[in-house]
């Protein structure tokens, strides 16, 4: 049996989710109307299906669990997540995947400002963010590790793949972009490169997963060329300071 969120307070809904997931590994919430923190800190082996519009901080501190949204999500999805998977059958608001350290987020449609900001990797932990359509300003700002894939599907005439200041302050990780992108919106000190064979392999796995989740056509997606955006230096601010002794 699923949980009905309706107009209930988020504390209530989250408490019921936690209670359910103590005994079950899987549960679903229906009629979600922007309730916050759904799936907060969900542990590995647990999964949560959400129907409706997930509120801010969806799956924050996600700890290996799996959260699927049949609908769109508001701001700060996967905030500071440490692992697991978030699948959004819709679009997402600002600061998607802020500070995420591991795990994967798939967004079928577009994302607003500051997607993948300050993503970072550590040892075997490598966060991945796959966006089906386009992204707003400051995509990958301060990015320190991990991978962002920007597919640019269904773009209307005049729409850009990403907004201004993309990858500003980026000092690690990589961004794969499909098709034409607005070079003027790219921050300084970012190199545009061809994909290496291992990049191709990595990308193909993510695109396959995207197609599996959202029923997209793999061949069609791969028919357009991809480029890789990487920081020209891993220490963009290395010479910023002078010791004042």
């Amino acid at each position: 049996m699923s949980i009905t969120a309706g107009l209930r307070r988020y504390e209530d809904v989250n408490e019921e989710i936690n209670r359910r997931l103590k005994s079950d590994d899987k549960t679903a919430v229906r009629e979600v109307n922007g309730q916050r923190y759904l799936g907060c800190g969900l542990d590995s082996g647990k999964s949560l299906d959400i129907y409706g519009t997930a509120g801010n901080d969806l799956a924050c501190y996600l700890n290996g669990g799996r959260v699927t949204v049949y609908g769109s999500a508001q701001d700060a999805v996967g905030n500071t997540m440490g692992g697991g998977e978030i699948i959004i059958h819709g679009h997402s608001g600002d600061a998607l995947g802020y500070g995420m350290r591991d795990g994967k987020i798939f967004v079928r449609d577009n994302v607003c400002c500051r997607g993948g900001i300050h993503m970072k990797e550590f040892r075997q932990m490598k966060p991945v963010l796959v966006i089906g359509e386009n992204a707003g300003a400051f995509l990958g700002e301060y990015m320190a590790g991990g991978t962002i894939v920007l597919l640019g599907l269904n773009m209307k005439h005049g729409e850009k793949l990403f907004g201004p200041h993309c990858a500003s302050g980026m000092h690690g990780g990589k961004i794969f972009v499909r098709g034409a992108f607005p070079k003027a919106n790219l921050a300084q000190n970012i190199s545009v490169c061809e994909l290496e064979p291992e990049d191709e392999k990595e990308l193909s796995a993510y695109v396959k997963a995207y197609c599996r989740y959202f029923g997209a056509d793999y061949a069609e997606i791969m028919s357009k060329p991809f480029k890789k955006l990487v920081p020209a230096t891993s220490r963009p601010y290395a010479n910023l300071y002078t010791p004042n002794l």
């Binding site: 802020y98 320190a144 220490r235």
Partner: peptide, 21 residues
């Protein structure tokens, strides 16, 4: 330090001026 901060060794640990959330 890299273990505690959970970032790769030798990488700059940059904290943005604001919390972006």
């Amino acid at each position: 330090v890299s273990n505690a901060r959970m970032i790769p060794e030798g990488s700059d640990a940059i904290s943005p001026a604001p919390h972006h959330d």
